[in-house]
Amino acid sequence: MRPETEMELADIVAGLNEPVRIQGGGTRGVFGPEPVLSTAGLSGITLYEPGALTLVAQAGTPVTEIEAALAAEEQQLAFEPADYRALLGTSGESTIGGVVAANISGPRRIQAGACRDFLLGVRYVDGRGQVIKNGGRVMKNVTGYDLVKLMAGSWGTLGVLSEVSLKVLPKPEAVAVLGMPVTQVSAAVQMLSAALKSPFEVSGAAYDPELGQALLRIEGFADSVAYRIGQLQRELSAYGEAAQIEEPEETWRAIRDVGRFEDKEGDVWRISTKPSDAAEVAARLEAKNLLLDWGGGLVWALVDAGSDIRARLGEFDGHATLVRAAPETIQTLGRLQPEPEPLASLTRDLRRKFDPKGLFNPGLMG
């Protein structure tokens, strides 16, 4: 099923009598029931006002199309959505609706915020086939229930997005990356934390144990970047000698897309935790490879196929998401972290309100 208009989407949903899998570009490797309800036919930028830093697009619009339109005006999606196609072995075109539905947010989240923080408004079809609109086209519009934030990260379980409104930001004039040799996760997190606490507006803080390097990104006007890079090198001199990395944008794209794991066998997990707990979490994982982002708050782990990382971690302050694995492993362990019962009960109640017939992506979020 591939509707071409919002009303056609609403008519299809109103007539559904069996569960469906909601799909944008099919790039996220989400399994589920057949048939598939695709939003790829709902495509196109419907409003773009560079002066107002506002863009409105239908949910099936390819992210590449949006990024090209923004680049022509020297603007960008500040939350830096990742491209996991190589990591997951998928094809197709990532869509803006899929990015919003999964709240995909890249390395710049530590400075700029997540996808949901740039979401101004949404239009979607609920489980009754009703078209719902919430939010607006300006950040100050907060009237009524904040369904905008609720839809971001709901993975299509509450409704099928048909249109999203986003705040965009200017592209930085210059980008520079510092690399510092580090051999221990704890030392790397300590250094990254010091950099993030500095006044030099670090927009990326990662650690690649395989390279043995902690990486810091600075963005902005060229003169400002040059000054802040120099100051940051001096500020961090107690941790070692930091040097600028060539091809900074390529370096950070590899971190954003977890390029280190693309051609390696095994399951891939994404663990969100407190940076101060990153070293202990990394030790418990018994991973073949690691990659840390968000100053240690995001830990990517490559482990042997079928490994139950949640069992290894036990109780910890955070959550573990199974990003890449065989379908049977995902079926057994679940893609998303199981919720505590009080929260799970609230989730079930919300789903019954939004999707009373249980049509959308059953089993994905409880």
Rank of each mutant, 00 (worst) to 15 (best):
S237D: 12
S162Y: 01
V138I: 14
V148I: 02
L158W: 02
R108W: 01
P19M: 12
A176I: 05
V225E: 11
R260N: 08
D83G: 06
T61G: 08
L161G: 06
E34R: 13
F79T: 07
G358C: 07
G136S: 06
I271H: 03
F79H: 08
L211S: 13
G259L: 06
G127R: 03
A311D: 13
V258N: 05
P181V: 04
Q58A: 13
S198K: 08
A112P: 00
A176S: 15
R123V: 12
Y207T: 10
L37K: 05
K149F: 00
L211Q: 14
V99H: 01
G98H: 04
D304Q: 15
K357G: 01
A82D: 09
I271Q: 03
D223C: 02
R234N: 13
G113R: 05
S43R: 14
V258Y: 04
S91G: 14
L216K: 08
G204Q: 00
A325L: 07
R108M: 06
L346I: 14
R128Y: 05
Q58H: 09
T54H: 11
A301Q: 04
S94T: 15
A305C: 10
E210P: 00
R352A: 13
A52P: 00
A206K: 00
V303L: 14
G204R: 00
P275E: 11
A112V: 13
V36A: 09
